[in-house]
Design a protein around this nucleic acid. Structure first.
Lengths: 339, 339
DNA sequence: ATGAAAGCGCTAACAA
DNA sequence: TTGTTAGCGCTTTCAT
């Protein structure tokens, strides 16, 4: 067997039981089901446990119950600032409920994502998928095995929490409209992106309501390089303002425009999406639609915990969290004669 | 008990054993100790296992052996770009050895760090501490419980992996010296920081050898705000170049200098440390001493794994990983008449 | 090379 | 309210 003639193993419920003069099961109950045991007995047990330095073994507890108190958060890219606050929020929510959050980076690869999940699933009680690269059907299979919450993606029947892109986009266009812009471009992100579709649709609708002309360029990669690539098409489009798929694209645009000698915001205004770390570092500081990143992470974990406890997904329709426009220095009225 | 009259539990070694006509222990061996079992038997067992969709339960495996295949990486702040590549490197190294990495953010708080560790330690086989805020003695206690590796900190007797700050600083000063600078400031970071002490000491030594005058200002918080605060003291110091404790301070400095109308690099050159994400976003793009972030994470995990397997710390002296100077646009020759 | 059996530390029926 | 007892799924001596 394993234990051998242990020198100084850590104490178990048996040690506590003996020392307190009760049965092991009573010790167990004293910790996992307080109230199901006489107050005085419980107190004594706790005292003895303290003295012995007893700590419940999470593995042993998990084996018969399946309750590992472990939650997985899968992100497509830890180095993407988009996830920082999401991770933070998620971790806070998990800590608050005494759960341990396992953050896993899958490097933008659906294969890596599946492999990671294969390893994680038997260990965790639930998983939240941040910007998953996996197919809908793969996600559904996962959701059958463990309670699952999806971030920034809507998937019929699977609980999800997303940013209210429509309202955010609306705010951005209102802002641009008030400044006097009339013709505005959208620098699109990856076509496969759910958020991209949402944003462009919202832009068309808002443009229509606000009587603004909107124009789509792209798609571009959701990176600095993508933004750089958008410079040419943007110039060709003859607009005075552009809303980018996300901040990385917007910042790339800023850099490319600067290199081309086009002044921002004097000649053209630029608006980003998400408000990632870096959006206020660039110059000019980026006006952007701030996604409720922290809240997104927090809400996802709370929802997950709820579903785990309910033993079945309750939140079947997506939770919509509000975005907020952060006005910085990359937007201004259009050049005279261009309005 | 627990299992109840299960509908469709996942198959166990018992199921496989029955189906393959062998004993459960043989199935166990076939997986955990291949070679200790007849090749043909093993093949048959594997075939049957596949068919049944058998997957070893990591919890059950871990209970008797303690081998959870879980490693903890504790970072003081996930949102600090400094950690991105560290996390990546660590995760790669862990994946390569079929270990699961648990990344935990402790929000710059020693208390949170201790609490997180308390929860993690019984679960993981080892821990790497990235920029720990805990005291040396607390870390030593931890190291007694689980193999531990420390990042960017040297702690007698505890395995650690650190950046070669001395060589990096030397490169930075050589670069500045070649450009013609003679008087250079160091914008210091937190006094409690081990890296800060190293960097300042290295700067003095290099300055001495290269015949440059070095001057220390600060300490400043290791943040953008810290950099902003450094603008005044910097102006007062009368130098033509400054090396900042880290990139965040350097970028803050860039922003503050711009606001004050001081041109970088024409009037003053700025060098950062670490090369975090953001160092090339800011303007001008930052010249900086790039820490081998990815390698740091990777090396830490490898060392940890090694120690876990050796069942005792082997690497008693710090591993020194090389830094590299990345020259971008924030450095240039000093103004005429100031050399 | 393989099997039998004990045990890892805990939980949860079931009885008392 | 508390004790007894049988597992959870796996590993590992000890026999054979």
């Amino acid at each position: 067997m394993v234990g051998s003639e242990d020198e100084r193993r850590s104490p178990t419920i048996y040690d506590v039981a003996t020392a307190a003069g009760v049965a092991p099961s009573t010790v167990s109950r004293a910790f996992s089901r307080p109230g199901r045991v006489n107050a005085e007995t419980a107190a004594r047990i706790r005292a003895v446990a303290d003295e012995l330095g007893y700590r419940a073994n999470p593995l042993a507890r998990a084996l018969p119950t399946g309750r590992t108190s472990l939650l997985a958060l899968v992100v497509s890219d830890v180095t993407n600032p988009f996830f920082f606050q999401i991770i933070r929020g998620a971790q806070e929510a998990a800590d608050a409920e005494d759960q341990t959050l396992l953050v896993t980076d899958v490097l933008e690869s659906a294969t890596a994502e599946r492999k990671a999940l294969e390893r994680l699933v038997p260990l965790v009680e639930g998983v939240v998928l941040g910007t998953s690269r996996m197919s809908d059907s793969t996600i559904r299979v996962l959701a059958k095995q463990r309670p699952t919450v999806v971030l920034n993606r809507v998937l019929g029947g699977i609980p999800s929490v997303v940013t209210d892109n429509a309202r955010g986009m609306r705010r951005a266009l209102e802002h641009l409209g008030e400044l006097g812009h009339r013709k505005i471009a959208y620098a699109a992100g990856p076509e496969a992106s759910w958020a991209d579709g949402m944003r462009w649709r919202a832009m068309r609708e808002a443009g229509h309501e606000l009587d603004l002309r909107v124009h789509r360029i792209g798609p571009f990669a959701p990176t600095l390089a993508g933004g750089l690539a958008a410079v040419g098409p943007l110039a060709a489009s003859g607009v005075t303002a552009v809303v980018a798929y996300n901040d990385l694209v917007a910042i790339g645009l800023l850099q490319g425009l600067a290199a081309a000698g086009v002044k921002v915001p004097q000649r053209v205004s630029v608006v980003g999406f998400d408000d990632i770390f870096g959006a206020e570092l660039c110059s000019p500081a980026l006006t952007t639609v701030a996604a409720p990143l922290h809240a997104l992470g927090q809400h996802a974990v709370r929802t997950l915990l709820h579903d785990i406890r309910a033993r079945t997904p309750q939140h079947t329709r997506p939770a919509l969290l509000p975005a907020q426009l952060v006005v910085r220095s990359s937007t201004a009225p259009p050049p005279r004669g261009r309005r």
